[in-house]
Amino acid sequence: MKQNNSRLQAVRDAVNRVDLNSFRFWLQLAAFALFVYGGYFAIDLGSRLPLFSCAYNDEGRAAICYLLPLQHQLSQPWPRLFSIASITVITGFLTFVLWFIFLNKGWCGYVCPLGTIQDWITALRRRLGIRYSRYSQSQFAQLTRVKYLLLALMILIPLGIGGGFFSHDMSPPFCLICPARMVLPMFTGDVSQFTIDFSSKTAMIMTAVGISITGLFLVGAFVKKRFFCFFCPMSALHYLISKPALLKLKKDGNKCTRCGDCYRVCDMEIKEIADDVKTVNIMADDCIMCLKCVASCPEEGALKATFAGIPILESTEAGFIKRINKGCSDGK
């Protein structure tokens, strides 16, 4: 028994000292290959995935982002939507929730291909020695609401289309303005989304807005870490259903010294991670669960990631020192 415990502790120590950045880089790369090129290997994980595996990447996708079928379903004519067909909407949403609760917002930090592209653009900027930008706290407070606004519009506009209030040329509204529609198919050589649709005024405006947002996305992701995740309605939807998720980010406020390391490494600039010493489940709505905060925390057990209540990564002094030393040697 004792031997088993010591082995388990040894495994835990090894995990807690892991080079999280490298681990994350390779996992993201594998997930990117799976979701952007998996279709070429006949992989199909369905259409209820809680990440931007864009349906417009027609050839390579291994799954479909749930936001597309959700918008399509909601834009059905009302007599159909509010009939037996609503069962498909509900079952679709439940499937999405089941996928989601497995990784919580870890889908954003480790799996989402659009998030990975932003991390790669950030890595490029760092290599070029260009500093990154941060929002002021007042800007942060205002901008963090945008994703909820987009989520509301993403639901209301399709309902309006189904009710005959808006043109079908607006469907699916969020996908038409999502940069993933343009960017992800590009990785399989498909640039067909870089077009303006002149078939109607509505289509023209929607596609022009989509192209413009893609231009802003490329510039924004270059100067601001995870630029788009801040406005992502999928992130807002994630947060609203995150209670039953298995993966959790927990904080022990008694062990926190409020040194601020976790805040400084946070790509999403979530200040509560450093300031809040009362909340146990510390995951904020903007969090992408990259767990960089856990890796950067020098206090034993102050921050930890748990899966179904079992700690899988915990902040330790030894892990912190190991990662700091590696960071220094990499810096040389």
Binding site: M182, V191, F194, T195, I196, F198, T207, I211
Partner: peptide, 10 residues
């Protein structure tokens, strides 16, 4: 659909 306009605006 127009590539020219799309790429131009982008």
């Amino acid at each position: 659909m127009s590539y020219a306009w799309g790429l131009g605006i982008g």
